[in-house]
């Protein structure tokens, strides 16, 4: 039996929201770093890739991996990438704290290429894609006209939970208050006794951990591969700008809008799936440069 247009629309909406929540998770890392340092961390997509590999090795049965459960696999990947994010910031970005912004931007591209090419080396991850082990038996639930898989529910649920945790951290903890202060005015915050280096490290740790979680969740339904971070990295950057760069709820909204748009476009015109993200980017920059939820002046990056 053929499905009506409305039920297909609802189905694509659900699929798009699940996919978009991945973009939201990655976009959060871009937006948090931008909020504090006014700088786009172009290596962020590659941290997502490393996160996916960390999750892959954590859940792959011994002797190829650690044979952990998915929950611990995700946590381990998040911890590993938080550490990696802090190391990258300390080694590559901190020495350039007072350098022209363009220098840091180019350094970020350099870090990105370094991670991609090191990962492709046969003695690291190797260039070949690897299927993710089947840690969860896939089941499909039918809710009225819409079919949702347990994997999609897991992606949405985990993303939402992580975003809630992040909001709680940003709004109700000491480090969160410090982050908001630094993002408002770094120098004044420093004068008030906020250790800005610690805050910046924490920001990279949180953002990288979220990217790692996104990487594992995507790998779960596809595969891991050294260049898997490039496209999602760029798309999530678009999502961050779409929602309003520097704005945490904006990154979430931007990711969901982008995910749903992609699905609606790919449904009828699969050729334009990647184009829609950039069309949206151009549109938002023309119509509302501060993004959907963004406020304040936009600075040249």
């Amino acid at each position: 039996m053929q499905d009506g247009a409305l039920s297909v629309f609802l189905q694509q909406l659900v699929n798009g929201l699940a996919w978009g929540s991945i973009y939201s998770l990655i976009a959060l890392g871009y937006t948090m770093v931008y909020g504090i340092l006014r700088f786009i961390n172009f290596a962020h997509g590659d941290i997502y890739m490393i996160g996916a590999y960390a999750g892959y090795f954590a859940v792959t049965p011994r002797p190829g991996g650690l044979g952990l459960g998915l929950f611990w696999g995700v946590l381990l990947a998040m911890a590993a990438c938080a550490l990696l994010g802090v190391i990258i910031e300390r080694a590559a970005y901190r020495p350039l704290r007072n350098a022209p912004r363009l220098t840091v931007l180019i350094t970020a591209i350099g870090v990105s290429l370094l991670l991609e090419n090191v990962a492709q080396h046969p003695s690291v991850f190797g260039p070949n894609p690897r299927p993710f082990p089947d840690v969860i038996a896939m089941r499909t639930l039918h809710l009225g006209p819409v079919a949702v898989s347990n994997l999609q529910l897991l992606i949405v649920g985990a993303s939402l939970a992580l975003m809630v945790v992040l909001q709680l951290i940003v709004n109700y903890t000491r480090i969160g208050r410090a982050m908001r202060a630094v993002s408002y005015d770094r120098e004044t915050a420093a004068l008030m006794g906020v250790n800005t280096d610690t805050v910046i490290s924490a920001t990279f740790a949180f953002g990288s951990a979220l990217a790692a979680a996104a990487g594992v969740l995507v790998a779960l339904v596809s595969q891991v591969e050294p260049l898997m971070g490039i496209m999602p990295g760029i798309k999530a950057f678009v999502a961050a700008v779409l929602g309003g760069i520097g704005n945490v709820p904006g990154a979430m909204v931007g990711g969901l809008v982008l995910g749903v748009s992609e699905y609606m476009v790919a449904w009828h015109w699969p050729d334009f799936r990647d184009a829609i993200a950039f069309a949206l980017l151009i549109l938002i920059l023309l119509v509302r440069p501060t993004g959907i939820l963004g406020t304040g002046a936009v600075e040249k990056v």
């Binding site: 499905d3 297909v8 189905q11 699929n15 995507v218 339904v221 449904w267 699969p270 799936r273």
Partner: peptide, 24 residues
């Protein structure tokens, strides 16, 4: 009739597959 691109690194095909499923 729908398509994807392996060169762009497509890994998510559910949008196209949902359209395919709808026509049974």
């Amino acid at each position: 009739e729908s398509s994807y691109s392996s060169v762009s690194g497509d890994i998510d095909f559910k949008a196209q597959l949902t359209g395919i499923r709808a026509k049974a």
